[in-house]
C-alpha cells in the first residue's frame, strides 16, 4: 500500500494548480523513491516532470509500484477542501480504484477524508536524456513571470539570447518590439534576488510565450527558477522544491528563419 504524509497540503495544492491547465489526466507514479509525474500537454509541445521524493513526506511508505491515474480537475476540487496548513496524507491500496486523501488540522481537531476515483491512463513515457546545457540561468521566479507576461502583451513568441554579459528576452509584435535584459547580479543580503549565469557557449532560441506564462503559475512554489538552454533542444524550466524534489517543464523550441 501507499501512505504518504505531507506536513503542509499547500505543496500539493500549488503543484496541481501549476500544472492543471497544461495537462488534464495523468498518472502519479509511486514507488519507494517517491511520487513522480510525467505528462505532455495535448499539443505535444511541452512536458511536465514532477518528482516529490520520499524525503519530502514524513512518513512515506510504498510497498509496491503503483500508478494513480488522476484527473487533475477532479483532484483540484478535492484539494480545495484542504487548508494550506493542513497535514495531508495520501493513501492507496496496491491495486486501487480510489485515492484516499486525508486532511488534518491538529489545532482544531478536524479530520477530513475524501476518496477520489482513479482512472486507467495509458500514457507514453519519454526518456529525458541527461543534458549538459550550454547556459544555465537562475533568477527570481517572480521576475521571470513578469518578463513573460509583459512580453506576451506584444507577441506570441520570445527570443532568449544568453551571453556572458546577460540574458536577453526579446519579442516583435504588431504594435512594436520589446526586450528585457538581465545582467548577472549578486545580492548578499537577498540571495533570492540573484541573477546567476553559467555559460559554456552563447545560446539563442525562440519559444512560445503562452507556454512560458503557463509554467510561471509555479512561481509560488519557489522564489527562484532555473532556466537551462542549449541550441536546438528544449528549454528546461525548473522550480526546486524542498528535499531535492522538483517541478520541471520542458518546452520545444520554434525553429526556422
Amino acid at each position: 500500500m501507499l501512505e504518504a504524509r505531507l506536513e503542509q497540503a499547500d505543496l500539493l495544492k500549488k503543484v496541481v494548480d501549476a500544472i492543471k491547465d497544461l495537462v488534464q489526466d495523468c498518472n502519479f507514479d509511486c514507488n519507494d523513491s517517491g511520487v513522480a509525474l510525467q505528462a505532455m500537454d495535448n499539443s505535444h509541445v511541452a512536458l511536465v516532470s514532477m518528482m516529490l521524493k520520499a524525503e519530502s513526506f514524513s512518513p512515506y511508505r510504498c510497498d509496491r509500484n503503483v500508478a494513480l491515474g488522476v484527473n487533475l480537475t477532479s483532484l483540484t476540487k478535492v484539494l480545495r477542501a484542504a487548508q494550506n496548513e493542513d497535514i495531508l496524507t495520501l493513501k492507496a491500496e496496491d491495486a486501487p480504484d480510489v485515492l484516499n486523501l486525508v486532511f488534518e488540522n491538529t489545532d482544531s481537531d478536524r479530520l477530513s477524508e475524501y476518496d477520489l476515483k482513479l482512472m486507467d491512463i495509458d500514457q507514453e513515457h519519454l526518456g529525458i536524456p541527461d543534458t549538459e546545457y550550454a547556459a544555465t540561468i537562475s533568477l527570481p521566479s517572480v521576475e521571470f513571470r513578469r518578463i513573460c507576461v509583459d512580453l506576451m502583451a506584444l507577441s506570441e513568441s520570445v527570443s532568449i539570447e544568453t551571453s556572458k554579459d546577460g540574458i536577453k528576452f526579446s519579442c516583435a509584435g504588431d504594435i512594436g518590439n520589446g526586450a528585457v535584459t538581465l545582467r548577472p547580479n549578486t545580492n548578499v543580503e537577498k540571495p533570492d534576488q540573484n541573477v546567476e549565469i553559467e555559460l559554456t557557449e552563447p545560446v539563442a532560441l525562440t519559444f512560445s510565450l503562452k507556454y512560458l506564462v503557463n509554467f510561471c503559475k509555479a512561481a509560488g512554489l519557489s522564489k527562484t527558477v532555473k532556466l537551462c538552454l542549449s541550441n536546438e533542444v528544449p528549454l528546461l524550466v525548473e522550480y526546486a522544491l524542498a528535499g531535492s524534489s522538483y517541478l520541471r517543464f520542458y518546452l520545444a523550441p520554434k525553429i526556422g528563419d
Binding site: M40, H44, A46, H125, L126, G127, P234, A252, K254, I255
Partner: peptide, 14 residues
C-alpha cells in the same frame, strides 16, 4: 516564420 517543434521529437519513447 518559425515552426513550433514537438517535444516528443527530442525525447525518446520508453
Amino acid at each position: 516564420a518559425k515552426t513550433q517543434q514537438s517535444i516528443s521529437s527530442f525525447f525518446t519513447k520508453k
